[in-house]
């Protein structure tokens, strides 16, 4: 079940990431065209950067599901299959640890409990927490930066989901399966 949700979510992440990659390309081309006809648009650079950042974190989360990650396998490749299997589970656990840590860091940063506790009153929230995340503006887009920063909790949640599914979904040790 968890495996199916993880696969489904990874497909959505990859599709969105591909659309964002196309968006980056179009925005940069738009930049070249508008500047050369003397009608430059000031918000394009910032939007293109955010599109790339979202593409990155969506793609990085999906990579945990598909196993598309750069790792140094020089030592593990030489080990017997059974040991490799144990190590793979240890790596799964470490990746899950990372995902949970990211979730916790996002919790500290977005402080959702304090925001709700203050009835979504940003001024009161800031006074109580010294946390100014909801006051930060974007440079040119006219929206609050917190909307863009949502990439991080989305990434943390996706990574946690995929890591959990990997860990629970792995087949048992080869010899156990044989018994």
């Amino acid at each position: 079940m968890l495996g199916r949700i993880s696969a489904f979510w990874a497909r959505i992440e990859i599709t969105l990431a591909a659309l964002l990659a196309a968006g980056v390309t179009l925005l940069i081309l738009l930049n070249v065209v508008t500047r050369n006809i003397g009608a430059a648009l000031f918000w394009v650079d910032e939007l293109a950067i955010y599109a790339m950042v979202w593409m990155t974190f969506l793609g990085a989360s999906a990579a945990l599901h598909y196993g598309h990650t750069v790792a140094i396998t020089i030592m593990t490749d030489r080990l017997p299959a059974a040991v490799q299997h144990v190590i793979a589970r240890l790596v799964d656990a470490i990746v899950l640890g990372f995902a949970l840590a990211m979730l916790w860091f996002c919790w500290l940063w977005f402080a959702p409990a304090a925001l709700i506790g203050n009835g979504f009153d940003v001024e009161a929230f800031q006074g109580a927490t010294f946390n100014f995340i909801y006051a930060e503006p974007t440079a040119t887009l006219g929206v609050k930066k917190a909307w863009v920063w949502l990439a991080m909790p989305v990434f943390a949640l996706g990574a946690t989901l995929h890591a959990l599914a990997n860990m629970l979904g792995r087949s048992p040790l080869p010899q156990e399966a044989a018994e």
Binding site: A40, L41, F42, D45, E46, A139, T140
Partner: peptide, 9 residues
């Protein structure tokens, strides 16, 4: 106000 495209960089 000048009608320019201000670009942060």
């Amino acid at each position: 106000a000048l009608g320019a495209a201000p670009t942060p960089m």
